[in-house]
Amino acid sequence: MTGEGIIELVDVRKTFRDFWLRPTVNAVDGLSLSVRRGEVFGLLGPNGSGKSTTIKMILGLLEPSAGKVELFGLSPRSVEARRRLGYLPELSYLHPFLTAKETLGYYAGLCGIPRAESRDRTRQLLDMVGLADVSSRPVGGFSKGMARRVALAASLVGRPELLVLDEPTSGLDPISTKEVKTLVKALAKGGMTILTTSHLLADAEDICDRVMILNHGKSVAEGKVGELGTSLEEFFLAKVGDADSFKLAPFLSQSEATTTRSENEEAARDNRD
């Protein structure tokens, strides 16, 4: 880890507006963060906390309403910054009519990789994600897990310096999840900077060096995973709380009452008989 800032966010805000430009949601509110070269940084938070919005601003897909976002010291929308970037979205979003090989070849072409090198790289990556045997099948017929693996390979095809993973283990079975985590660790060991989001705190605990917890678009905690002094899950619950979680109590009590009533009615029927 050299300490050089790869991602810099300074007091970033994002407000979504409706057709009449009236503000509807403050998705990110005064967020500042810095991700250094070679670290695996986890962006955690409950649903609607602003993780995906933050990632999209880092990728240049969204323009911040205020504040500064820099990638490699450049604007995220600059071609130079995008040349050094790999992205795995939350869902795979592949072209269904392309084969796995064509998909990787297409993204390699967009990254400007020469054809011969692109062929080798495609073969190597498909082998790595275990899809070499089905490389000529259209990805539209793939299972969710297989499509996820193609998307992961596609994110790596341009040999990125920064890999942004949005829920990388979503849709994967336990074995594939373990393999992805092993891969992320290996990539980080090789010097790649990784920014990831995850709902699965155990996964984040396994792979992240440092995490930031977001709630309502604001950073509520940030720190190294090894220095939390408790498990990530306990730390997370302590910071976020359950204010926005399901309101189960009334439902459960109603359900309990219904069950008790039917049990009583059944017992009464038995007594009559």
Binding site: G60, V79, E80, R83, L110
Partner: peptide, 13 residues
């Protein structure tokens, strides 16, 4: 279909 974002994050104008 959200595929456009995958093209837009590549180094292509």
């Amino acid at each position: 279909a959200r595929r456009l974002q995958l093209t837009m994050v590549r180094p292509v104008r």
